[in-house]
Amino acid sequence: MSERDSFLHLARPLGPAPIGAQPSTAPLSVVIQPQAIFSILDHSLRRPQDQDRVIGTLLGSRSEDGTEIEIRNCYAVPHTETAEQVEVDMDYQKQMLALHLRANPREVLVGWYATSSELNTFSALIQNFYGQQGDGTWPHPAVHLTVSTVPGQEIEARTYISAPIGVTAERAADSCLFIPVPYEIKYGEAEKSGLELISSAKDREDRTQGIITDIESLERAVQHVLDMLERVSNYVNNVLDEEASPSSALGQFLMNALSLAPKVDPADIERDFNAHIQDVLVVSYLANTIRTQIDLSNRLATAALTLGTGDALTGTGEGGGREGGERQKGGERRGGKGRQQRTVEA
């Protein structure tokens, strides 16, 4: 999803407003969660061979004033297009929507997607269907998300809302103006690093990628920071050698960033670190002592049980025995299991 198209979004078309509120023309923005994009791409992969694009319903949430729409989820809706007509399985859409809303009561219908960047008169028809009163998003505008899925080319997403066009009712029913609106794909740090890991497997022949350990990722991060530092100090050296033109704003910024490091003596650090190490040692010592205590008490408890041979005891000891068996390791566990088997046989 490289650079954006250049467009201007200043106002949305005036729509009907909830009772008691002024209708507003405040511009809106769309936030897309990546899982929605993934399922759209997946849907596009599974489309019938003769179909250029497939469509589906977008679900998500809408801020109270309607200026921010978040697309969280989506599902496919079967449709067929021929040169003359488009058919959307409305029953299916209704049923699916009802089921989805039962599972996710907080999500609402926000619009629809298509897996081609193209807009045509069928798009207008479908858009009006999704924005209509009753089953549609009315009184809010329906969002149309297009995701281009041409193989070999970058994936491009665009979001639109629509405005009416035409002065007669019949004209307005099957036509509309698509207004591009700004969107943002939001994903968290965890999702990003996970995705990076997965996508790094795509260049390998066996299509596998090991998960890196904490220490490796630390090493990688340090390396990364070093590279960045290298770049910055290159620039600074160039400035000093009068090869690059200095930008005082940049210098000011660097200075501020570098001043963030606290001013401390190495001796202080040494002292603090040693104190910290001692704390850690004490904690680990205490933890060990407690573990030993627990172990000991467990062994004592099971020892008492295994000593008793009466049938009455096996019945009551079952629960305790299992607990003990779970906590203990090695040889003791085997003993516990054996005993349990006996109880089952009995």
Binding site: D5, S117, L119, N120, S148, Y160, R171, L177, I179
Partner: peptide
């Protein structure tokens, strides 16, 4: 690729 040139569909 530029975005769709026509968004007015009537």
């Amino acid at each position: 690729m530029p975005g769709p040139t026509t968004t007015l569909l009537i």
